[in-house]
Amino acid sequence: MPEIQSASGDAQLADESFRTIGKTYVDQPRMTASQVNVYYGDKQAICDVSLGIARNEVIAMIGPSGCGKSTFLRCLNRMNDTIAGCRVSGTIRLDQQDIYDKRLDVVPLRARVGMVFQKPNPFPKSIYDNVAYGPRIHGLARKGVELDEVVETSLRRAGLWTEVKDRLAAPGTGLSGGQQQRLCIARTIAVSPEVILMDEPCSALDPIATARIEELLVELRKNYTIAVVTHSMQQAARISQRTAYFHLGHLIEVGETTRIFTNPQHKLTEDYITGRFG
């Protein structure tokens, strides 16, 4: 398997085996990435990936460790900006607007494209303050009652309200792992984003907590567009409508989840799904 390096990047672009199979663009896209390349210093992490994300769909990104799926996800709300030496080329559009445009501001972008991380990372503040953080910094709700309402709605949507309504002042770090992750989801949806990016949201959780989050995802799909990076093929199969398979920085195959899992076109996809590696 060739190593991904900028020096050999051009050669790989021409390599037939890495041309994406399946329909990369969608009819009603919320987000569209075209020919995205990401470099960490000299190393190329993403090679020429194009992918559309439709409204109100759950798209799962799968692939072996280090395949670039998380990197790609972090491009979608420019979280990679915080990493020193990271360079992104190509275009990513959110509703026709190029998010890597120099004039574009990341603050409103990230308010529109929220993110949930691999490890639950509640702030060391109260549960209430965790959820209220986003609305407060963006000035979405000034008055106490208004803010209370946003907090309650968000916690309800995240399926956490009944569990924490009596102890909103307790520290968010005191919750169980699954509850913490739902708190993080509540925190994200409190600013009413259009897209939610989730980077392996269940990898640090036990099976029961995982099941709750998965249920929640299905529920959230009605209002939000969701992109999930996952390690677990079963999870991808359960929650997503479409699936994208990444391999060594290339997007190998994308399509309806059912088709990908039943009838993979590419040899690599098939090997991964059948468990030859991963």
């Binding site: 979280m79 990230r110 929220g114 993110m115 702030f123 600013v191």
Partner: peptide
């Protein structure tokens, strides 16, 4: 992770 969470919500 805490910084990421905050940036991810659009904080400056």
């Amino acid at each position: 992770a805490l910084r990421d969470a905050s940036f991810g919500l659009g904080a400056t």
